[in-house]
């Protein structure tokens, strides 16, 4: 069973296509990077898979069913900049929001949800910040908090929008370890990624995107210099030829 199947997905703002006829087949238990230049539609792809943007056409299946039916299987880490970190709440409270989906409407979080939130904070090394106001966190700590919030969702398939954005090297290592840990538990992680240098080291699958799907598959096949050139045009001088796959 495929973790994610996207067929003929097209998203447009008015008449301007942002994603053009995207097909994706993602098997279970892999770490997949979505890479592409700015404006390639990476965030839009994730948002339309999660039903946050209404596509003009196409179909999305998560473990064979629609997103609405499989919501509980999906975890989501939005871009760190998408929320107001001055919001009056604590780190633990933000993590607890990951439990809200399972709780559904009206029901209040219980002691068990609290415990799960604490455990998740421990996994990302943030337990001592549990009661901290979220605006006092550094970028890396904010990212870990979001990651913990996704962990308490206890999903099978995770979507992460730039989980490494604005974090230091230590945090980046810590986050990738957590992602690899998820993979070892048979979970699937799909992350928007910006650093082409680390794609081969961190991920086992990659999707190259630039409005259209340029390539998608195991890093060893899809992450070729030819595909990168097609995705980025001439703008990848910083990536040495020999670093790309195929050597």
């Amino acid at each position: 069973m495929q973790a994610l199947e996207v067929t003929d997905l097209t998203v447009a703002y008015q008449d301007k296509p942002v994603l053009w006829d995207i097909d994706l087949d993602v098997p279970e238990g892999i770490l997949m990077a979505i890479v592409g230049p700015n404006g390639a539609g990476k965030t839009t792809l994730i948002k339309s898979i999660l039903g946050l943007i209404k596509p003009a056409a196409g179909n999305v299946l998560i473990y064979g069913k629609s997103y609405a039916a499989q919501r509980h299987m999906v975890g989501y880490v939005p871009q760190r900049g998408s929320v107001d970190w001055d919001f009056p709440t604590s780190v633990l409270d933000v993590v607890m929001m990951g439990r809200y989906g399972e709780l559904g409407w009206f029901k209040r979080p219980s002691a068990r949800d609290r415990k799960l939130a604490y455990d998740a904070l421990e996994k990302v090394g943030m337990q001592e910040y549990a009661q901290r106001q979220i605006s006092q966190l550094s970028g890396g700590q904010q990212q870990r908090t979001f990651l913990a919030r996704a962990l308490v969702q206890d999903a099978k398939l995770y979507f992460m929008d730039e989980p490494f954005q604005g974090v230091d090297a230590t945090t980046e290592r810590a986050i990738i370890e957590i992602l690899q840990n998820l993979r070892e538990q048979g979970k699937t992680v799909i992350a928007v990624h910006h650093d082409l240098q680390t794609v081969q080291e961190y991920f086992d699958w990659v999707t190259l995107l630039n409005v259209r799907r340029i390539a998608s598959g195991p890093v060893s096949e899809a992450f070729s210099s030819e595909n990168l050139r097609r995705a980025y045009g001439g703008r990848i001088a910083f990536l040495k030829e020999e670093k790309a796959a195929g050597d």
Partner: peptide, 22 residues
């Protein structure tokens, strides 16, 4: 009192709220 949790999550992170089915 009834919608405290829903108001909180949709005010803080509308994207996640929508993804979770609120």
């Amino acid at each position: 009192l009834v919608f405290y949790k829903e108001l909180k999550i949709s005010t803080f992170d509308a994207g996640l709220a929508a993804a979770l089915g609120f």
